[in-house]
Each structure stands twice: as C-alpha cells, then as structure tokens.
C-alpha cells in the first residue's frame, strides 16, 4: 500500500471521528496555458496484430475534452529482425500496423513524423510470465460495502528484473489506469496482484491480462501514477520523463501477455 493512501486513510478516519465536515468543492483557479504538445500512445504485443498507435495534441486545461486525433502523420514500426511496417491511418489519429508480428526478445523502434518533426522511441519486448492462478476474495471497504475482488498469483522468475502491468476485461468493459508492479523487493517470490476491476457479480466473465513490460515503460507508468493522486501526492508534481526523442507526451510499450479467464462463482 502506498504511503499517500495510508495518509489519506488516517486523515479520513481522524476527520470522520472528530468533525465529519471534511468536504470537497469545485473552485475557479487561474491556470497557465501551455502550447499544444504531441501525444503518442503506441502498444505492441506478442499477440497477433494489428497493433495501433494513437496520435493527438494536448489542450488547455479548461477547454472541453474533445480531443481529436492528429491526421496525416507518417508512423513506422520496425524491429531488430529487419521488419519495417509503415502504419495505415484508419481514422484521424489512429494508425494501424499492416503485417509486423510482435515477438518477445526483439527490440522495436517507433518513428513518428508529424508537423515537420520526427519522434523516436525504442522498446525491448520482455519474456512473458504466466498467471499461476486467480483468487476471488470478499472485502469490505471504508464505507462498509461488501465487494468481491480478484487477485492473481504470479511466480516471479528469479535472478532477472521483471516489471508487470495488470489489465482486466469484465464482461465487455476494460480496466483503466496503469496497474504496475516491479520485483525489486521480491525477486523470485510468489506474488499476489490485485485485479484493477472489482465488485463482481456471480456469472460475470473476467479476463485478466498479465503484461511483462520493459523497464523504461515501467518507469514512465510509475512517474505517471505518482502524479495522478494529488491528495498528499508529490510536493511537486511533474510530467513523466519523456520516452521519445525529441520529447513528446505518451509512451511506446512492446510487451508480452499471458491471460486467464474466469467466470465469477
């Protein structure tokens, strides 16, 4: 459990015990305006393609959320086995691979040329790690509601650094956020990871993906997460360090996946 979450819990319990008046309120805050920046989101896995790269531009904070894709860019994914795939624009901002197949152990190169500039990133696809088993538990949350949660058990390979990302698909709904783990403190152990989604009902179909992700991608997600929870969050939130040269927002992840599916009992 992260320190910030513990601090939040202690504050909540303390304030609840004393005054019960802690609240939130929408405020008008004057913010600075940044120039629009390119955002690149590229994912490639050892599953069969096509794989997608999404391009968009950042907006001012108080503008509406109608992000539109960036059209007419040249997007190329290549690997160290000599494959070179120029992506096809499916709709504005969404680019699809044509033939390249992700294979673990290979290093992938993403090259995006947009608005006169070329952005590049490299990523090595790690060896996949199996999900040992799925464990369904019942938990009671802070508000007293009883919820069904799931954990997966993973036997971490010893002697090598491993980084994981867990995603899930509950019926037709995909999980959000970067649920990541690193074996720095438990190399070679049997570990239990929370499944991002919860509150299952009997008969639900739950599919869990365990991604093995590159170290640099892990670092990006980790820095990204540090800034997502502002309550007792870093004193100075900052954007994650760019994985692209020259700097662009977003990431390029070449990961391997192992899955397991369960019908909630």
């Amino acid at each position: 459990m992260r320190m910030q979450n513990m601090i939040r819990t202690i504050l909540m319990v303390f304030v609840a015990s004393m005054v019960s008046t802690s609240c939130t309120e929408k405020i008008n805050l004057k913010l600075k305006n940044s120039t629009p920046l390119l955002t690149i989101e590229g994912n490639l896995s050892d599953r069969s393609g096509p794989y997608y790269v999404i391009l968009s531009k950042s907006r001012l904070y108080y503008e509406n959320n109608s992000f539109t894709g960036l059209p007419s860019a040249q997007v190329v994914i290549s690997d160290d086995a000599g494959n070179n795939d120029t992506l096809t624009e499916v709709v504005a901002g969404l680019y699809s691979t044509n033939f390249i197949q992700g294979t673990f152990g290979r290093t992938y190169h993403l090259k995006v040329t947009a608005e006169g500039k070329t952005y590049e990133s490299y990523c090595k696809m790690p060896t996949p790690v199996d999900i040992d088993s799925i464990d369904i538990t019942t938990e009671t949350d802070f508000k007293g509601n009883v919820k069904k949660r799931a954990n997966i058990l993973v036997r971490d390979p010893a002697g090598v650094p491993n980084q994981y990302r867990v995603t899930s698909l509950l019926n037709d709904t995909a999980s959000t956020g970067f649920h990541i783990h690193i074996d720095r403190l438990w190399d070679g152990k049997l570990r239990s990871f929370n499944v991002p989604q919860s509150d299952f009902k009997t008969g639900d179909t739950l599919k869990i993906d365990l991604q093995s992700i590159d170290e640099h991608v892990y670092t990006y997600f980790s820095e990204f997460n540090q800034n997502q929870n502002n309550f007792g969050a870093p004193a100075a939130p900052a954007n994650p360090d760019a994985v692209f040269t020259p700097a662009a927002l977003g990431y390029f992840s070449a990961h391997s996946i192992k899955s397991k599916t369960i019908v909630i009992p």
Binding site: L29, K32, L37, T39, S56, R59, G250
Partner: peptide
C-alpha cells in the same frame, strides 16, 4: 504546480 494543459492517454 498546477496543470497548464491536458492530454489524452490510455483512455
């Protein structure tokens, strides 16, 4: 440190 903009990533 407050946001000076926003971007769309991972939904």
């Amino acid at each position: 440190t407050f946001p000076s903009g926003k971007y769309f990533l991972n939904g």
